[in-house]
Design a binder for these strands. Structure first.
Length: 419
RNA sequence: CGGGGUGUAGUGUAACGGUAGCACGAGUCUUUUGGGAAGAUUUAGUCAGAGUUCAAAUCUCUGCACCCCGACCA
């Protein structure tokens, strides 16, 4: 992509409404644009990141048997009445009426839709287990929105729903899903803790949240630094300095951002929609369900909260909008332009994603500063100075120093780095 | 939903009730090209409406928008 035609304007200063670091950097870098409070447009760079995150999620969901579907946003009143959530959902549903005065809601989640779908398709133990997921826009009528993409009322979410013949099978899959979640977050450059949280009326057991520990978080997590014990403070019944129930180490308290969650739904939705199957022995039984969510925008903002410096974003390589930021210093200099053009084409042919700063009349200083802000993992600099030695500058965004490399070696170096 | 705050040009920021200014951005020209370059020149603004006043960005009211704290957060 040539930066001269990229739909992206950077700003030196963030708009004053931006408070959190991720919000400021996303706005400054032209990744997103705010339409109204809690509702954002994704611009080309932001959308690229979002798509990469989605694809990582798809790979890991497919790897544990997930099949992708796409369920409707417009949902009828009656299915929400069946679970008693039309009136009692909190946050309340976004409700609207069609021209025939039929009441509808914009989906904040899809248990109702997926369960009524499952009823039509599950009748025997042979139909189980079943894992369906989607990546789709959710609408939540929250009381308050804040922190840019950290809390919005319209957001992209991956939700997976699993259907099982018995608890053993469910619990086995629940563990698999948790481990898939850790893989996803790791690939996105995050290292969350799995936290026990309220059963929320679905279950007497815990649900689980994946929390990234940082001051920017809204939740508070009580965790053990020595073992895997971690519990949301809302339900902890313990306090900082108490002994860990597992290993007796002293518990610590920290803020966290919830980037994903997994819930045992038990038989709640199966009951509400009469989702039964016939077991091997001819017995009619309720299907056991689980549900597993990841908010894509919040994940993206969290990555920035955890990966930035004073100059801008430092994207982890798997979700960076581009792998390489190729800067041409003095693009009106024919020699520089010729070499930079060649590198751009060669890298593209090699399947390496390049953002090419081919803008004329933009100073090197500005190109460098913007490059830091946008945060691609690798920077290549073509300038007359080093060209005399047949070299270009190569710098990793997360490292301090730049090295000089020969033009012929670039492709090999990058290929090696990618693996 | 309760409490608080703020709305001035694309962005950031000034202006005692009395001439709306500065910086960055954007446009044009010249020079410049390894850390957001320099000069010249141009561009563009008081959220909306009502009120008080000789006079309102400034005071009052209403509306709208945004932000923060709390509560809430399938």
């Amino acid at each position: 992509m040539k930066q001269s035609i990229l739909f992206c304007k950077t700003e030196k200063k963030a708009p004053k409404e931006a408070d959190t670091i991720s919000h400021k950097l996303l706005l400054r870098g032209g990744f997103i644009d705010q339409l109204i409070s809690g509702v954002y447009s994704f611009l080309p760079l932001g959308l690229l990141v979002s798509k990469k995150i989605c694809n990582i999620i798809r790979e890991e969901m497919n790897a544990i048997g997930g099949q992708e579907v796409f369920l409707p946003t417009l949902q009828p009143k009656n299915i929400w009445e069946q679970t008693d959530r039309w009136e009692h959902m909190d946050p309340p549903l976004f409700k609207l009426k069609d021209r025939h005065d039929k009441e509808l809601a914009l989906g904040p989640t899809h248990e109702e839709v997926i369960t009524q779908l499952a009823v039509k398709n599950i009748s025997s133990y042979r139909d189980l287990p079943l894992y369906l997921y989607q990546i789709q826009t959710k609408f939540r009528n929250e009381m308050r929105f804040s922190g840019g993409l950290l809390r919005t009322r319209e957001f992209l979410m991956k939700d997976l729903y699993s259907f099982h013949a018995d608890m053993v099978d469910f619990q086995d899959y629940y563990k698999k899903a948790a481990s898939a979640y850790f893989k996803i977050f790791k690939r996105c450059g995050l290292d969350p803790v799995m936290v026990e949280a309220s059963g929320l009326g679905f279950t007497n057991d815990f649900t689980h949240e994946f929390q990234v520990l940082t001051d920017a978080g809204e939740d508070t997590v009580l965790y053990c630094p020595k073992c895997s014990f971690a519990r949301n403070k809302e339900i902890a019944k313990l306090k900082e300095g108490d002994k860990c129930p597992n290993c007796s180490s002293l518990l610590k308290l920290e803020r966290g951002i919830e980037i994903g969650n997994i819930f045992p739904l038990g038989e709640k939705y199966a009951k509400a929609f009469n989702l039964y199957f016939l077991d091997k022995d001819g017995q009619k039984k309720l299907v056991i369900m689980g549900c597993y969510g990841i908010g894509i925008g919040r994940l993206m903002a969290t990555v920035i909260e955890m990966n930035h410096d004073e100059n801008g974003i430092i994207w982890p390589k798997e979700i960076a909008p581009f792998t390489v930021h190729l800067l041409s210093f003095d693009h009106e200099n024919h020699k520089v332009r010729k070499v930079a053009d060649k590198i751009y084409q060669d890298l593209q042919k090699a399947g390496i994603e390049v953002l090419y700063d081919d803008r004329i009349k933009v100073s090197p200083g500005q190109k460098l500063a913007e490059s830091d802000l946008l945060g691609m993992p690798i920077r290549l600099i073509v300038g007359e100075k080093n060209l005399a030695k047949n070299k270009v500058g190569l710098k990793h965004r997360d490292k301090k120093t730049e090295s000089l490399v020969s033009i012929s070696s670039i492709k090999t170096l990058l290929k090696k780095w990618q693996d």
